[in-house]
Design a protein around this nucleic acid. Sequence first.
RNA 1: GUCCCCAUCGUCUAGAGGCCUAGGACACCUCCCUUUCACGGAGGCGACCGGGGUUCGAAUCCCCGUGGGGACGCCA
Length: 463
Amino acid sequence: MTVRTRFAPSPTGFLHIGGARTALFSWAYAKKHGGQFILRIEDTDVARSTPEAVQAILDGMHWLGLDYDEGPFYQMQRMDRYKDVIQGMLAAGSAYYCYSSKEELEALRESQMQQGLKPRYDGRWRPEEGKVLAAPSADIAPVIRFKNPKDGHVVWNDLVKGEISIANQELDDLIIARADGTPTYNFCVVVDDWEMGITQVIRGDDHVNNTPRQINMLKALGATIPQYAHLSMILGDDGQKLSKRHGAVSVMQYHEDGFLPEAVLNYLARLGWSHGDEEIFSMQQFCEWFDLDHITPSAAQFNTEKLKWLNAHYIKQADKQSLASDISLRLAQLGVTVAAQPDLSAVLDLYKERANTLNELAESIVYFYQKPAMDALAAEKHLTDDIKPALQKLTTILTTCDWNAEAIHHAINDVVTEFQLKFPKVAMPLRVLICGIAQSPSIDQVMVLLGREEVLARVSTFK
RNA sequence: GUCCCCAUCGUCUAGAGGCCUAGGACACCUCCCUUUCACGGAGGCGACCGGGGUUCGAAUCCCCGUGGGGACGCCA
């Protein structure tokens, strides 16, 4: 049987880091087994679903390169099918109308909680042999409930967590269609997973409790039951749960913050999954290695520092052309126009080993395209009067010497020797005058790229 | 409250009874490289939640406890 997995987000917000990992694992599992990966948008909550959120999810998937073989399918477009299935269940007696009002249910829940019980529907409208149901009140539009088995256990072998067993006694008759007739999540999932031929449901840990109900419905429908793999949640950097209010950022935020999709993907792959000691690997490699056996059942804390480390790695490996075009965009956002000289690619060659993010990289090379602001501390430390004669002499040599790293290095060396100084004594003031700060790559290389004219202009500001 | 799940360095993890004196990675510290800062290289610090079993032997299996998390919607 071909493997078919799906990612089924609800479009009520952007694609966040947890969703991205779920998508990645489902995607990789399908790839590994030569199967299909399906994208399904679960938009049955009309009140909260938005087209913007749909787009945000699509954008996030696209940025990460998580392509799907089928879809996106929209559940709202499958309403007729769901309603057909519900009619069939009503006819077969595995579903029934319930005329309890919301208020009535709310009161029930509260009294159960007070008694220390698990709040659940008491089955007052559930048809039973020999049971006489009350007359439905005309002013209440009924919901439809699934008639869950009362006895026995639902047991499945979770591909991540192992065997999980839940007593049917713990389960109540869940609503599968609202009063307005629209089907609810747990029901649509069942129909879709069934009809789309999903073989492995890989999803968040928060769905564990839905699984036995879904299995019961699948059984009632005579459907094949897929395998389930429940992924534990991802905690924020501070160990707290990710939520809309707290740290649950969009994957696109990582794009804006200067992370490469390769880094985010690689990081996510290692969050909860491992392949021995492997830390850095391509998605192609990941798809070959990926398996459900090596997923940790416990929650994982997100660690931005490690993501940065991976990002730095992928920046070093980045394709020259695409790195240059990305960085020039980011420079533009900083209000910096990239001139033809110094050549951006050459500048990046000098700098790409030094940055953790693309934003850092862009910021660090601004001084090649506009005069830097002078760091006061660096200036105070290095731009001392006693160094002026040496710099004066250096300026003279630089005006006429060859313009390459070697020649410039010699020029500095000559001055160092002549004035009986240490190399940094000359290089540091030079660096501060040219870069505005006391840190830069090899100063002679920086000077080569910046050009003689601009170097002399900047050095001459110190007299 | 009830049900379900989880538990190895600060963090991500390796570990399927002897290979564990518990390995790797990020972070941190030291040193080397050096023209500053990075990069890179070499070291270092640092963990099996507690208690009982089972076994010749347990990080690994079982039970209890503790701690954490999830679910309990006419949300998904």
